[in-house]
Each structure stands twice: as C-alpha cells, then as structure tokens.
Nucleic acid binder design. Structure first.
Length: 574
DNA sequence: GCCGTTTTCGGCCCGACTGTTTTCAGTCG
C-alpha cells in the first residue's frame, strides 16, 4: 500500500463523512490528513512501519491508527463499513460543477439518484424539480455540467495551457484600468497538472475589467461575472478565473490566490500568533495587538510575519515556512543559469531534425553544449541505433565540433535501453566510446516494484551510465508511472553518483518534483533535459526549470548549469 | 478529527457568486 493509496482512502472517507452530514471540521481533518500523507517526508508508509507516526502535525491519534491499520492489513474496517452506506457510483457526482455534499445527499435520499447517468435522466424528465433548491436554472446548469464532463477532461497539463495563460494575462494587462496584474493559483506555483488558470489584477474599475475580460474573443462561455470576479471557459474546456481588486489589496490577494491552500492555512496561523487576521484584502489587528506594517508588495507580507520571501513554486507547505523562518530558502535555479542540456534526439532515431539543425537551434538559444542521445537498438519502434550507426554518429559529431572551436559543442551520447534484467542494450565496449550515457526504461513496464527497482539499480551500477532518463515512465493524464521505489533509486544515485534526469517534456516532467528535495538533500544531481524530438522542443527547458524550482533545486544542484569546460572535465572528455 | 505560551474545551479562513430561500444556503476557491 503506497502513500497515494492511503491518501485516496482518507479522501474517500472525507467525502463519505460529508455525505453523512458529519462535522465539517472532522471531514476537513481527513482531507488535510490525505494531503499530509501525499507530501510528508519521510514517507508516512515508512514511518508507520517503523512506528514513528506520532510526530506528524495534522495526523492525530485517530488517523495514526487508521494509517497503521492500512499499512499492516491493507484494509480499514472503519472505511469498509462506511462504504456500505452509499453506492460507489455516488462519488462521480462530486465531479459535477455545482453539486456538493448537501445536494448530492438530497438527490440520493429523496430521489435515489446515485450516478451521473441517473442525474441526467432526472434532469431531462424534470423529476428533479420536485426537490427544494433545484429550480429551472439549476437543472440547466446541471445538464450543462454533465455535457462538459463528457466532452472535456477537467485537468490540463502545464505545457498545454501555458501559451493561453500568457495571452490572457497580456489581455488583462492591456486594459486601461489595470494597474498591475499577475498569474496566481497553481499556474503561478508551476504545478504540472492544473484545473484552471487564475489571473489577478489591480484595477481602478473592477466591474469594467471583469466585463471586458468575459467578452474576450478567446472566451467560449461565461460561467460567472460579478463586480470583482469573472469565471470563463475557453474552447478547450479550460476554466479561467479573474479577480479584480484595488491596488492596496493586490499584494494580499496575490498571496491569497496563489495558494496553496495548505500553505495559506499555515501562513494565517502564523499571522494569528501576531494578533493579526489575514485575508485577501489586508491584515486586521485584533484588540491590543501591535499594528501590522504597511504592505506594498507580496514580499512585505512574508517580511511582516518574520519570514524571508517564499517563491510561489515552494508554497506547498512542505517545509518552506520553516526554511523562510531560519533563512534557508534556497536560491532557486533560473532558466538563465542553464548552459547546455543532455538527452535530445535526431533523425537518426525518432527525432524530426538533423544533428546540424539541432545544434543550430541550441546555439540560437544561447546554449554552450547540446547532448545527443538517440535511442538504442532495443527501441526498434523508435528506430533505435545499432552500434555501427551509433559509432558513425559519434564520428559525425566529432567532425561537426571542429567548426565551433570550443564556443559550442555537441556531446555524443546515447539513450540506452535498460533491458528487462537491468543489463544495458549496448556492451560496455561501445558505451566507453561515448561522451556520456542516459539509461532509460522503455519496455516491460508491468514488472512488480521490487523487480523494477532492482532492474534500474543494476543499470545505475554500471559505471558507464551517467544519468537516468525519465525515472518513472509516466505520461501525465495518460499513463501511470510504473511501479518503482523512488526513494531507493535516490539512495542508489547518491551512492553511485548517477545523475537523475528531470525530463522536461510537459507530458512527462519526470522525476516528479515531490522527490527532488529529498534527492537534493542526499547530494544527488539533476540534469534538466528536454528530451527534444524536434528543435522547437528545446523550449521545454523552461518547463523543466519551473519544475526544478518547485523541487527546491538551486544552480548547484543542476549539472547543466555548468559551463562547457567544467562539463568536459566532469565527463572526462578531452 | 486536530490542536494548544490566553486553551484539554472550543475553536477550526472566509468572501464572492448564484439561485431561489423574500434573508440565506450551497458551492467554490
């Protein structure tokens, strides 16, 4: 049972308790517990096994017992009993916008509606209007929400929304009443998966701005439009929220709407200790408390609370507040710090551009080196190279390098397949002729966790392997990560000096940001690699940097911030 | 259900928006 499994059980308990009409704080405690289980370091599964759960804030006696029962028996009696009270299909109703626990319970109790399908019929034959609180507008909205659910996913990848997020921010910026504006929410925090885009604006005419925003040509549908807030939907189903506030409230609103919720709860608690209540508009001093200082910028809020500025990417309540308190917030890596990158493909395997074109694009981006790592022969679906073609490519790279005379360099590598037993797709004698080696898993995804972990560790123990490619093989919103013990891989990387890749293809973003803080603390280095299959994809580096920042990584933690000469030394290349 | 330098009881973030409920409940973030 993984931490994610446990978190899901706790989340489900919270939903079931809500349906039962339990105390909201009790349900909140379960939801909160689920979040803690997802993100706590070290892993609560390990803590439970070592009987070390008693010092985790937010996990009290009752949740401790439940987590221990889950880790030892893979079951939870309390949960099993609770589940018998409602049909499992009821959960899907929580996906419908506009339906919460109260309404779902009413639908179930009064009309026996237990699924989206049943809800749809009840809306269509209008039997639903007999319920108090379900007027004609509600029925229309529910039908619309059901349609949306069928048509669109409710989650989007960062890389799929970034362009639109920037276009809409520009549009808000262009309105004459806008004084300043910024993204907020999970986009600002660089989450890899988003539910919506949040934009915050300081304006002298809030109602005008929300009107203007809801009428932009990119807007497909207006969900809500009030005097200070507008919610719209774009053609691809993505929801975008705009908040319009005064210039004085802007820093507070920016802090508030950037989240995360967990971070804000902790920040508010801290404010309360000073006798100040903090909301999206201001500090309010309670009676007898020292008056809060004047706030001009978001950073002033953190300063007022005795904290260093916390970059938005870190605001997940994963230790950033403690770090800000004791002055140990890391100076996070930036895109400008990158000097080169590894793991890119060419037409030799499944890339769309030649060596020359990729090199030119890298130079254009200001990089000093570009690593070429085409697939190895076992990846026949990707036109993987046999040794002969690989060595020919190495020669080609050597001859191309002459023209740049040290100002730029192509590095000759390979993305070699880790075979099912952990051996590599090329002999050591071939690997020894390369500048570096990326080792990746491309088949046998269904191995049990122990075997998969052993397989990857065996590959890492090969001294020719420089770095590990896309550690878990996940494809966001498409394919689950394969079963692998990431903590063990990190430990092995620390021992063997193997670099772990942060694959910045927005469909992968693998290894996950949640593991990097741990990896960094153990001294494991990161390579931010675009895994570019065409020259435009070198731009993926920007997503990689965003996620590296989210993983607390500094310039020193990222190997490809090193200038060319240092990299040549590091790789032992003449 | 969790938590504690006012506390082991009594708090726990709260404002915006919508619809229908004519004074507020439910949902959302």
């Amino acid at each position: 049972m993984t931490r994610e499994d446990i978190a899901e059980v706790l989340d489900n308990i919270a939903l079931l308790l809500e349906l039962k009409g339990e105390n909201v704080f009790k349900t909140r405690a379960y939801k909160n517990g689920a979040e803690i289980v997802r993100s706590h370091e070290p892993d609560v599964v390990k803590l439970a096994k070592d009987n070390q759960l008693n010092n985790v804030a937010g996990i009290g006696k009752a949740l401790q017992e439940k987590i221990i029962e889950l880790t030892t028996t893979n079951k939870l009696e309390f949960y099993e009993n609770l589940r018998t009270e409602f049909p499992p299909s009821l959960f899907e109703l929580f996906d419908i916008q506009g339906l919460g626990p109260k309404k779902i319970k009413a639908l179930y109790d009064k009309l026996n509606i237990d699924s989206v399908e049943a809800l749809k019929s009840a809306c269509q034959d209008n039997s639903i209007s007999s319920l108090r609180g379900f007027g004609t507008k509600t029925v229309d909205k529910l039908l619309h929400a059901i349609e949306l659910r069928e048509k669109f996913a409710s989650h989007f990848r960062l890389g799929d929304v970034a362009v639109m997020a920037e276009i809409l921010l520009d549009a808000v910026h262009a309105h004459p009443s806008t004084l300043r504006c910024c993204h907020a929410g999970s986009y600002r925090r660089s989450k890899e998966i988003l539910h919506d885009i949040d934009i915050l604006a300081a304006t002298t005419a809030p109602a005008e701005l929300t009107q203007y925003f809801s009428q932009l040509e990119e807007v497909e549908e207006v969900i809500a439009c009030g005097d200070t807030k507008a919610s719209v939907r774009l053609a691809n189903g993505l929801q975008v929220d705009l908040r319009a506030v005064t210039n004085d409230a802007f820093p507070f609103a920016l802090q508030y709407f950037s989240g995360s919720k967990e971070h804000n709860v902790a920040i508010r608690q801290r404010a309360l200790k000073n006798g100040w209540s903090l909301n999206e508009y201001n500090f309010t001093a309670k009676e007898g408390a020292t008056p809060p200082p004047t706030i001009h910028e978001e950073a002033d809020i953190y300063k007022a609370l005795g904290l260093d500025y916390i970059p938005p990417e870190l605001r997940e309540n994963r230790g950033e507040i403690e770090a800000a308190e004791n002055g140990s917030i890391p100076r996070l890596v930036t895109l400008e710090n990158l000097r080169g990158t590894f793991h890119n493909h060419t037409t030799a395997s499944d890339g769309k551009n030649s060596l020359e074109e990729m090199a030119e694009a890298a130079i254009e981006l200001g990089l000093e080196y570009l690593g070429i790592a085409d697939h190895s022969k076992a990846s026949f679906q990707a036109n993987g190279l046999y040794p002969e073609r690989l060595l020919k490519q190495v020669d080609h790279i050597k001859s191309l390098n002459k023209q740049w005379e040290g100002s730029f360099r192509l590095l000759a590598g390979s993305e070699v397949d880790i075979l099912k037993d952990g051996s590599l797709d090329f002999d050591d004698s071939i690997l020894a002729q390369l500048d570096y080696v990326v080792a990746s898993v491309h088949n046998a995804f269904t191995l049990p966790e122990k075997e998969m972990t052993k397989r990857i560790i065996r590959a890492m123990e090969n001294p020719h392997v420089t770095m590990l490619g896309h550690l878990t093989g996940r494809l966001l919103l498409r394919r689950e990560a394969y079963a692998v013990n990431v903590d063990k891989i990190i430990d092995c990387a620390a021992e063997t000096g193997t670099i772990i890749e942060l694959n910045c293809n927005p469909r992968r973003l693998d290894m996950d940001w949640r593991h990097w803080k741990n990896a960094r603390e153990k001294g494991v280095k990161c390579a931010i690699n675009p895994d570019a299959h065409r020259l435009e994809q070198l731009q993926f580096l920007a997503f990689g940097v965003r996620l590296a920042r989210k993983g607390w990584l500094t310039k020193d933690d990222v190997i490809n911030t090193k200038p060319l000469n240092d990299i040549l030394d590091f790789l032992n290349i003449q």
